[in-house]
């Protein structure tokens, strides 16, 4: 087992455990922190897959900006474990059972898929580099990229309008 495999397993286990902790934590602040762990783990996977640009963007945008926003909102509302609304026990069980069944069904469906010989490139290939991504983005995906800016603009306007005190 080389370093790559070790890292892969370590990151995978970290991601899964952190994800479970996100769901089960009583305190919303803890959930946010566990979610940041998940994002770090996933960024680690990106680096293993040699997608450096995405790894960095993931850290900056998700773990940085978005999670800070979440923390900020939580603190603004002064939420903690005591204010956590409790759900009906049966509905909770039903939710877990439904999620688990979905996992089972998906695994069952994918188990027979013939993918044994398909490998994901690890640590090689240069499509994840900023230069290549940037060339493709500003050549082939020019219009979607510009439209994204419109989306952002409308999101900003929307957030301002909704958050405005009236």
């Amino acid at each position: 087992m080389g370093t790559t495999q070790v890292l892969f397993w370590f990151l995978s286990v970290l991601a899964l455990i952190s994800a479970i902790m996100v769901v089960v934590s009583k305190n919303p602040v803890h959930s946010v922190l566990w979610l940041i762990f998940v994002f770090f783990a996933i960024s680690g996977h990106y680096i293993l897959l040699n997608a450096q640009f995405l790894a960095i963007v993931n850290l900056i945008v998700y773990a940085g900006a978005i999670m800070v926003l979440f923390l900020f909102v939580i603190m603004l509302m002064n939420l903690n474990a005591d204010t956590e609304p409790q759900k009906n026990k049966w509905l909770k069980i039903a939710g877990v059972v439904a999620g688990g069944s979905l996992l089972l069904v998906l695994v069952a469906a994918l188990k027979h898929a013939d993918m044994k010989n398909q490998l994901a490139d690890m640590g090689s290939g240069d499509i994840g580099l900023i230069r290549n991504l940037g060339l493709t983005l500003f050549n082939d995906y020019m219009i979607p990229f510009e439209i994204t800016s419109v989306l952002f603009l409308s999101a900003i306007v929307g957030a301002v309008v909704i958050g405005k005190k009236d």
Partner: peptide
Amino acid sequence: CIGVSGVLTRRNAII
């Protein structure tokens, strides 16, 4: 699926 279960089991909108 963990995400789905979370959506189904929690009532806190932020979670």
